[in-house]
Amino acid sequence: MLCYKMWRETRTRLLISATALAWVCLAIVLTQKGNRAHADPPLSYAAYIWKAVYKGYVRDFFLILVIVLGGGGILQERAHGTAGFTLSLPVSRCRLTFVRAAVGLAEVALLALMPAVMLGALSPQVGESYQLTQALRFSVLWTMGGAVLFGTSVLLSGICAEEYSAWIVCFLSMMFYSAAVNITPLQRIPWLNFFKIMSGAEMPYFNSADHLLVGPLPGLPLLILPAIAVGFVIIAARLSQRRDY
């Protein structure tokens, strides 16, 4: 039943996020003809989708939505006056955190599926096609990358009392991380950049000529990214145990 509570608390956010993501995908597909023609050189449909969706602002938008999904928790419940009720249940704080994280990660995966669903459904409507397997592979990469940011958001929502503060600090952390891996000498190691892992840019499993994922997805990074997310969630759980509510 804890899953049910977490789902009820986040389902509106998920629904709004999924709808927003769907609308953005819809807009990108519907405007593809003009946008591709104005590009220099003109882009193939796969290249256009990759640049706009999987490497472009749709991915960044997805990550912002993931941050929003990671908000909540006991600290925020205090503001709503329900923390006393939740904490009086015979449930450990660790379990509360872990269940919230599990439900949230499932929602991140659902959100990551949205572009695949939309591209699969909409591309034929504009006379194009985008391979479903290709889109689903990107969904896997997005889920793993999104998990890291989701874990960060869960951790920060256990530190910052205000929900908006947690979101803002998480967003700033993402910007700082992005700057660190794109500007500093760290840029020479693309595996440190989970944005690149998500998009495939500069990665051996991505063919930059036809803008498609090729070969097997990278096993180790796909294990490390969720492991980092789980690490953040464990820290959040430990913090919640120590904290006064």
Binding site: K5, R8, E9, H80, G81, T82, A83, G84, F85, S88, L89, P90, V91, S92, R93, Q241
Partner: peptide, 25 residues
């Protein structure tokens, strides 16, 4: 003790001043 606190809460009911219950349910 967090583990013993669980046993306390299993047999204790608490109604806070705000009567804070999940508004969405």
């Amino acid at each position: 003790d967090p583990k013993q606190s669980l046993l306390i809460r299993r047999r204790t009911a608490y109604i806070g001043e705000e009567k804070g219950l999940y508004a969405y349910m």
